[in-house]
Design a binder for these strands. Structure first.
Lengths: 143, 143
DNA sequence: GTCAGTGCAAACGGTTTGCATGTTT
DNA sequence: AAACATGCAAACCGTTTGCACTGAC
């Protein structure tokens, strides 16, 4: 079990530093993200938050995730046209998502580092490794 | 100007081989895809088709693109949550999309080959290089 | 007391689907 | 004639937005 790279109180500190208010829905979102081992869609975050505070609306969750992302506390990425997945910022790097089981995995930074270097070298393209998840078939689903 | 790797009559031949009917909307879609230098969204394909045959509906274009893709004539990929982009199958490999100008580029197969090898080696993950577009900033937009 | 944050509901964009009609074979 | 393809409209899903209200500061 790796450290997530950020703690509850660190998130709250960043909010205070940026004159953002600390509200019950935000606390709930933080707890959900800290308690999640894998990557969650906005809908999954909402459902988990609603287990504690049933009145929290999806739009609030989107707004909170957006705020957290603007503060570099959260990262989201896309795989195909499916829903985006969110997780706390930290040691994460690239993402790959299995087309069969829909689980998103972290990819070691060295793999993405090399890709980024190759793209820069061949086309001068600067890779944004956080934003997009590659698709494919994971080892388990390939049997 | 590179060859697109497939010609009008080859597309029609594949349709015949697979007992698919050759209709005016399909001919129009083929012409649009053959005439496009870059990658088109389904909406762009629809609009260009409608310049010739104004009655063709978006859903028909989606169904045609889906059929063509199942026949391996067309490939589509996603960049973020934006609309998918389609183009004729051929020598294409991976895609990268610029977050600033939203242009999608082909990436040389060697870059994606190496990435695929790395992912297989490190995590046993089998990359689907066609389906997802990486994001970043292209050389032109970086100034 | 003020204003950022929230809940609700409605709008949105891209895509898919049900169904009656039209067209290819 | 039969099966497939199409047009239309409505549904769909993830996400965003307008607005009045609430609650953190």
């Amino acid at each position: 079990m790796e450290s997530k790279g950020i703690r509850n109180d660190e998130v709250l500190a960043v909010l205070r530093e940026n004159a953002k208010r600390i509200t019950a829905p935000k606390r709930a979102v933080i707890d959900v993200l800290l308690g999640a081992d894998d990557h969650l869609t906005a809908d999954e975050v909402t459902r988990r938050v609603q287990q504690i505070r049933s009145e929290v609306s999806p739009s609030t969750v989107y707004r909170i995730l957006e705020e957290f992302e603007s503060l570099l506390l959260v990262v989201h990425s896309h795989a195909g046209q499916a829903a985006a997945v969110y997780h706390l910022a930290g040691r994460s790097h690239g993402h790959v998502t299995c087309e069969m089981c829909h689980v998103t995995f972290e990819v070691s930074s060295s793999v993405f580092d090399r890709l980024a270097r190759d793209l820069m070298g061949s086309d001068g393209f600067e890779l944004d490794r956080h934003h997009v998840a590659l698709s494919g078939i994971c080892a388990r689903c390939r049997d």
